[in-house]
Amino acid sequence: MSSVVAVPGSVAPAAPREVSRARGIRRFKWAILAPLIALFAGVLLPVLLLQLYFSFHQWSVYLGSWWDAEWVGLDIFKEVLTDPRFGWSIIRSLAFALGSTIGCFLIGFGLAYLMHKPFRGQALYYILFIIPMLTVPIVVAYTAEMLLYDAGPINDIISRIGGVEHKVPFLTNPDFALTSVMLLEVWNWTPFSFIIMLAGFSSLPKEPIEAARILGASTWRIFWEVQLPLLRPVIFLALTLRFLEAMAEFPKIWALFQGGPGSATETIPVYIFLTTWQYFEVSKGAAMSYLVMMLMIVIVLLAIRLLRREKHAIDAMTAAASRTA
């Protein structure tokens, strides 16, 4: 930091100095934003426009180049909206995201609660618990196949415990398949919720909890009435991020099921993938993509409203705390 001190100070008179400072800040702000704007204008915008073009132009890939595609107005959107497969894939995606989010959260929260106070062996458990997040999804999928196939170790353990040979069809029963990937998602991403919640617990102010304890409140009441309300914003964050990431899950489902058995695991990403890259209905895929984007934006806007409210509450609280301090 000594180098900063060595920089000579400016000696301009007061008023022009303020002006030049304002100008300097403006220039600095633009310099920060310029690459971001370039990225948006150069990559994202053309891609979204291209997608929009395909949503309104039927491109039959066998008949000509994409710039010759025929304008069909809202026909493609109509086709997508009346396609029951699309509806089902949305329902599956929502179910998958909801189920895995809740699973990740409950386990992550429970682990964080059990671990937020120091105890012997804490570091070891912590290390172990974050490893699943460091495992590549494709690896998770293939390892799961080794574990769950009919003659795999999980079925062996079940058979040993039950005493009779019993092979659960984790991977081939359509009633089970989506749950199987959901469990994998929970295994894979519980560390994320766990870490967030652990940070939340360790940041809880000590004073209100001590005060409640002195007043004779039970651990249970302290948890419900003091700790949980204070953790609300963190909980919202953990749930929202996880849910939105789970909506986009592709590698595990694709590597294990490719949408099957039957169509039990055909979620939105899988269906769009099939439509665009297997059927080459680029236009239909584009229209679906736009609808999915709309859906995601609605969900995200809702989440943002909640998050902002929580964030403001927290900011106000910190501000109040720092005033009293």
């Binding site: 800040i25 600095f28 702000k29 920060i32 934003l33 990559v43 994202l44 053309p46 891609v47 979204l48 291209l50 997608q51 395909f54 994409w66 939105l244 909506m247 986009a248 592709f250 939105i268 990403p269 769009i272 993938f273 665009t276 890259w277 680029v282 895929g285 584009a286 993509s289 999915v292 984007m293 995601m296 934006i297 995200v300 943002i304 998050l307 902002r308």
Partner: peptide, 30 residues
């Protein structure tokens, strides 16, 4: 310097929340 307002910040986060499958087809053509 508040180069992005709070709303813009959330919009930036939203960008991450668009599943990649949604843009990959036009992106590959581009």
């Amino acid at each position: 310097y508040r180069v992005l307002s709070e709303v813009r910040m959330f919009q930036l986060l939203m960008l991450r929340m668009i599943p990649p499958i949604v843009i990959v087809a036009p992106l590959s053509l581009y």
